[in-house]
Design a protein around this nucleic acid. Structure first.
Length: 574
RNA sequence: CGGAGUGUAGCGCAGCUUGGUAGCGCAUCUGGUUUGGGACCAGAGGGUCGUAGGUUCGAAUCCUAUCACUCCGACCA
């Protein structure tokens, strides 16, 4: 492209409503423009990168044996009613009516449509396994879109769905997709990790999320400092501390604590060790629990893991904390003064709490705590479960090393669905015995637009974006100086421009008018993240050289004109 | 939905307290001088001050309502 014929929409100042770097830089470099909350225009520059990401995803999916299809963005309500999700999905599902008043939704995902398609098309086990994917626009009416393209309402997703007879076949395709995703993110030049993920209410064998590591990520990932273990903190198991419950060393005493409503205040005012405090959280009980509420106990410095808590049989799903008024009515004390001793509702304690002696907790009377509580002696040990988030320094669940926590951006998710949708939609094939069996399914997603943002999060400096080669909108920026004045410069530049394109490179040549100073051109190309830059100047031509600089290089270097091709070939892996 | 904040030219902002003809920088356009890291000079265009009411001789400024957007929490690729 010649810049004189291309839309360069760079801006010097950072738009005030952009919070994260990727959003700021995408706006500054002129990749996207906002249309409304969570809705964006992709400008020519941004679209080039987006298309390159799509191409890599498509190539690797094809290589894996998956077949590309295209499903409609608008889906009929009937299918969603069949799967039960018309009721379940909630307000994130954008529902629309057509002129006949028939109900539809704008697809946030496509399990229903693909399952409906496949149950009509595939009749025999001989046609399985089969994996279908599409790269397509999704819509989720997020409560709060944010971070620009990272969490927008409309976005592009690669979604794939595989069909099987039997779990073994599903596991095989799942493994293939795991490898395919690794290949994709490697080619995209991202620093990523597959991490164990929560399988949610569906259950099933396993699920992995693929996270790009970045401080701006919205997820916490737990790593072992010695093994390959990585899991979303939502899922990572908090092991029971080693050893037996230490013996009691103090008597239980009642202490007046009128000004200690939080653990922090309690610890400060009474000089306690926070590891010897316990907090009591009251949540709504499930139908199968005999009581209306359940108490959950975690150590003062730990956090309740709501997903783990939700999985307890006694706890209502979704997790719901009791209101203060309900707590008062139930226990006769406020949330700041609760504890296990003398509590009249079912209690579940975290594993760490179960191994703690001489601890402090509320006395279930306003303004009073018990210090020196011991299990068995002062109150019977109730049910024990893993209900907290792991923290740095915990032993790794894999048995090796300790936990480290880093932030990640979820760019992919692979999941064994089992028969959740095939069952609901009655998607069956005939097996070897001529018997109709329900198919097993897997699903595999990549947030294509999100990949673009996360690549920037991982690759930028003060000057702007630094694209990984594979998704750079252009590989090479050709910057001629005095293009309009010097015939030599113009001829050589035009020649190089043609030759480089001939050699297969995407080249942007900055022939903007003489009013555009060299500094502006350098700054724009840096901001747009073009990985390689070649400057053509009258001075250089006289000496028979060009100037080359990689986007990450500190220094520019002179290159003999005739060597340029080989220098670039060495650095650019097409 | 709860909490916090912001709406003034394409972008970044000032003006509002104390009402009196809407301003600055960048960007854009014209002419000229420049040309190795966001040049300089001269000139020009561009804003119903988010919207609707109200108070007032007079409202960007005070009052009321409303809308939009951003940030913090629950959802997810």
């Amino acid at each position: 492209m010649r810049t004189s014929q291309y839309l360069i929409s760079t801006v010097k100042e950072t738009p005030s409503d952009a919070e994260v770097v990727s959003h700021q830089l995408m706006l500054r470099a002129g990749m996207v423009r906002k249309v409304a909350s969570g809705l964006y225009n992709w400008l020519p520059l941004g679209l080039r990168t987006l298309r390159k990401v799509e191409r890599i995803v498509r190539e690797e999916m094809d290589k894996s044996g998956a077949m590309e299809v295209l499903m409609p963005a608008i889906q009929p309500a009937e299918l969603w009613e069949e799967s039960g999700r018309w009721e379940m999905y909630g307000p994130e599902l954008l529902r629309v009516k057509d002129r006949h008043n028939r109900e539809f939704c704008v697809g946030p995902t496509h399990e229903e449509v693909i399952t409906d398609l496949i149950r009509r098309e595939i009749k025999s086990y001989k046609q399985l396994p089969a994996n279908f994917y599409q790269i397509q626009t999704k819509f989720r009416d997020e409560i709060r879109p944010r971070f620009g393209i990272m969490r927008s309402r409309e976005f592009i997703m690669k979604d794939a769905y595989s069909f099987h007879v039997g779990k073994e076949s599903l596991q095989q395709t799942y493994d293939v997709m795991h490898q395919t995703y690794s290949n994709i993110f490697n080619r995209l030049g991202l620093d990523f990790r597959p991490v164990l993920a929560d399988t949610g209410s569906i259950g099933g064998a396993s699920s992995h999320e693929f996270h790009v590591l970045a401080d701006s990520g919205e997820d916490d990932i737990a790593f072992s400092n010695v093994s390959d273990y990585a899991a979303n903190v939502e899922l990572a198991e908090a092991l029971s501390p080693a050893g037996e419950l230490p013996a009691a060393t103090t008597e239980m005493t009642t202490v007046d604590t009128p000004n200690a409503k939080t653990i922090d205040e309690l610890v400060k005012q009474f000089d306690l060790s926070i590891e010897k405090t316990v907090k009591t959280l009251i949540v709504v009980a499930s139908d199968e629990c005999e009581a209306d509420f359940v108490a959950l106990l975690v150590r003062g410095d730990h956090e309740l893991n709501e997903i783990k808590a939700e999985k307890l049989a006694q706890v209502a799903e979704p997790l719901q904390f009791a209101e203060e008024s309900q707590i008062r009515e139930l226990i006769g004390a406020g949330p700041g003064s609760l504890g296990p001793v003398g509590l009249n509702i079912p209690v579940v304690v975290d594993r760490t709490v179960a191994k703690t002696s001489d601890f402090s907790a509320g006395a279930n009377t306003d303004g009073q705590h018990y210090f020196g509580i011991n299990w068995g002696r002062d109150v019977a040990l109730p049910e024990v479960a893993d209900i907290r988030n792991v923290v740095e320094g915990d032993p790794s669940p894999c048995g090796e090393g300790t936990i480290e926590i880093k932030r990640g951006i979820e760019v992919g998710h692979i999941f064994q669905l089992g028969q959740k949708y095939s069952q609901a939609l009655d998607a069956k094939v005939l097996d070897q015995n001529g018997k109709a069996v329900v198919m097993d399914m897997g699903c595999y997603g990549i947030g294509v637009t999100r990949v673009v943002a996360s690549a920037i999060e991982q690759n930028h400096d003060e000057g702007g974006i630094i694209w990984p080669e594979s998704i750079a909108p252009f590989h090479i920026a050709l910057i001629p100086l005095q293009y309009d004045k010097s015939n030599d410069v113009r001829q050589l530049t035009d020649q190089l421009y043609a030759d480089l394109q001939q050699a297969g490179y995407d080249v942007i040549m900055d022939d903007r008018d003489k009013k555009t100073s060299p500094g502006v051109k350098f700054a724009d190309m840096d901001l747009m993240g073009i990985p390689h830059r070649v400057v053509i100047s009258p001075r250089g031509i006289e000496a028979g050289t060009l100037e080359y600089k990689g986007r990450r290089d500190d220094e520019k270097q002179d290159v003999q004109i005739e060597d340029l091709m080989s220098v670039l070939a060495e650095r650019i892996n097409l």
